Simulated assay, not measured.
Amino acid sequence: MKYDYSQTIDFLLDWYQLNARILPWRENPKPYYVWISEIMLQQTRVEAVKAYFERFIHALPDITALAEISEEKLLKLWEGLGYYNRARNLQKTAKILTSDYGGELPGDYHELLRLPGIGSYTAGAISSIAFQLPEPAVDGNVLRVMMRVAGSFDDITETKVKNRLENDLREIMPKNRPGDFNQAIMELGATVCIPIGKPLCDKCPLMHLCNAFKNHTEDRIPVKKDKKPRQITERTIFLIEQGNKYALFKRPGKGLLAGLYELPGTEGKLSPDGVCEYLEGEGYLVEELVPLGDSKHIFSHVEWHMTGYRIRLKEFAAEKSIYEAASENDKPQAVWASPLEIKEIYSLPSAFDYYKKFIPGIET
């Protein structure tokens, strides 16, 4: 049964006017700012994004600057946000905008959808917030709020459910404040109709309209099919030091953390003796080995369970790359980087944050 969402409009807009958080991209909703913030906000909390957004905009104030920056510098700016293909798609789009759109985002929903990394949600957000076009922006927050209001037990992981909600909202979008309407639902979902824990129904402007609240089903809505369990991979990480420089190497161009630098390591959980044996097999002798403890990092479909060691090699290895002996087998050669270079040049994913903190001068 179709729910009439039009009755929510005034309550949402009035609530948003009084409760909207002050955010840098809201204070100045230029199309470029809205685009960058929306891509950053995918998979990342608002509070965490604010500092990254301000740093990014300071370094790359417009689309032309984004198109022209080297990929290595771009990924360093993105370091810590994760899902690095988001940054690569930003640059792909910036180059298209520079060559085909005069360096500006198009004020057209369907044109936006044609650009790399921009799906229906992001196109709707840019269209409504930056250009005041009556297009919905349906993300997880919006799905949760509206499914609870409607009392719907439809599975929100199904594309047809999202598409239906987009169509329902498009029909009732307020023509004078579409951006505020979209942001009001997002804001309500982020701060009141929350995904984890009990929703704050007593603070919700839609409580009197909400079927989930009336029927005491807010803890059962929205419905999502169970995710497949993550694959668990054990890894041993080496923090290898020579002459106040540390070994990094670049991951392959495809797959997990594609093209990023990482601390060297190997699959499996090695003992101290196992580490020495492994490195000796690569042609290197360990001068000193210190266990650094265990760490865990969760990706969307994989979990790394890591154990790490600080390693100092014997002096004779100083002129050799840690993987030089194995380069004939297509293993990448190491880059030897100082703490300052790691801080300012090389992008190390947050998966290695626990071990990065053992490098002098590196804060995580």
Rank of each mutant, 00 (worst) to 15 (best):
M186K: 01
L263Q: 12
K214L: 14
E262N: 11
Y278E: 10
E262G: 11
M1G: 09
R310W: 03
I237Y: 07
A130N: 07
W15R: 00
E27N: 02
I57D: 03
R21C: 12
R144K: 11
K198G: 04
I322D: 05
L112R: 05
K30H: 07
I345C: 13
F56R: 08
K73H: 13
N85F: 09
I63H: 08
M147W: 11
S350W: 05
S295Y: 10
N176F: 11
P195K: 06
K269Y: 09
K198F: 00
A150C: 13
G253P: 11
A150G: 09
D155S: 11
S6Y: 12
A325Q: 14
R177M: 14
K320A: 05
G308Y: 02
L289C: 09
W15E: 04
V335C: 10
L75F: 14
G140C: 00
R177Y: 12
G179D: 09
E47L: 09
Y261L: 07
F181I: 03
L97H: 05
P252F: 04
Y52V: 10
P61E: 06
G140P: 06
Y101T: 03
Q43C: 11
G119C: 06
L12Y: 07
V49G: 08
N85E: 07
P136C: 03
G189H: 02
P174R: 01
E72R: 14
Y278Q: 07
V161T: 06
I118M: 08
I156D: 04
E315G: 01
L90G: 00
D108V: 13
P222H: 07
M306N: 12
P178C: 12
Y309L: 03
I126P: 08
K269S: 12
E319W: 01
G82D: 14
F299D: 03
D168N: 07
H58F: 15
I194Y: 01
E111T: 10
L200P: 05
T159M: 15
P272Q: 06
